[in-house]
Design a protein around this nucleic acid. Structure first.
Lengths: 136, 136
DNA sequence: CAGAATCCTGTGAGATACTG
DNA sequence: CAGTATCTCACAGGATTCTG
């Protein structure tokens, strides 16, 4: 039966622990991980950050950094000058988060192909199984 | 300042890599992580799995396991008996995903309190800064 | 028991326009 | 430059009912 189940660390029980689920939501959204990962390069201004994250709108960047700031993951430093200059950076907590997400990010990069394969194989099989689908 | 920025592994550039973002979405949703984590205990039937994940509806469980099956993360074994018996389990790929997510899950458990503190502190500060908010 | 089918709602998220 | 303010819409996700 292939590989045995992983090290039997007693289950962290994400399923049962509502609080854990809530905290994980911090990362389980479209942009947070991208922001944290991008800030790894060092503190950056709003505009830099925006350019660093493909496809994000300024609205989403604004609300994402606000939330991450609130959660203590990133800092927001405002320089009272004209034009405005606001710099974001990781807090110590943010750095530990970054470290904790790295395996997952790495996994996603390493397994893109495997997932693509699984998907097309799955889609292939579904087409076979249901040859006489109800039209329309 | 404080701690230096983490090991300067060249950034994995989640921000720029759209594909990476797409794959991460696999985990960046409300239930996938809970399902994978719960299956760590071993293969389980639909009902067991549902009971193992607090708050999930069977609709969400159904669509989540379907997606995870499609992505090659879990297996779905149907025993043609009455009443139906369907067992879900982790694939080898799923087990590597589980391992990759563990640091993050652990992080969330370890840092709940820190995040709560950050939040209340942040909320506290906002209240100070804006004492004369426009009514309504 | 393990779902499929519906109905319904909140909100995640994009596009656009405006401002200190 | 770094936002805020609206408007809009799709869709994630809940509740409920039905079936092999």
């Amino acid at each position: 039966m292939a590989a045995p189940y992983p090290e039997p660390t007693f289950s962290l029980a994400v399923g049962q622990n509502c609080r854990a689920r809530e905290i994980l939501d911090l990362v389980a959204n479209k942009w947070s991980l991208g922001v944290v990962d991008t800030l790894e390069a060092g503190p950056q201004r709003f505009g830099e950050l925006k350019r660093g994250i493909a496809g994000i709108s300024q609205k989403m960047l604004t609300s994402t950094v606000r939330e991450l700031e609130r959660d203590g993951i990133i800092t927001r430093t405002v320089y009272a000058v004209m034009p405005p200059n606001v710099v974001y950076g990781l807090t110590d907590l943010g750095k530990t988060l970054l470290a904790a997400t790295r395996p997952l990010v790495r996994w996603s990069l390493e397994n893109m192909a495997a997932i693509d394969d699984a998907r097309s194989e799955f889609d292939e099989r579904s087409r076979e199984i249901a040859p006489g689908r109800p039209a329309k």
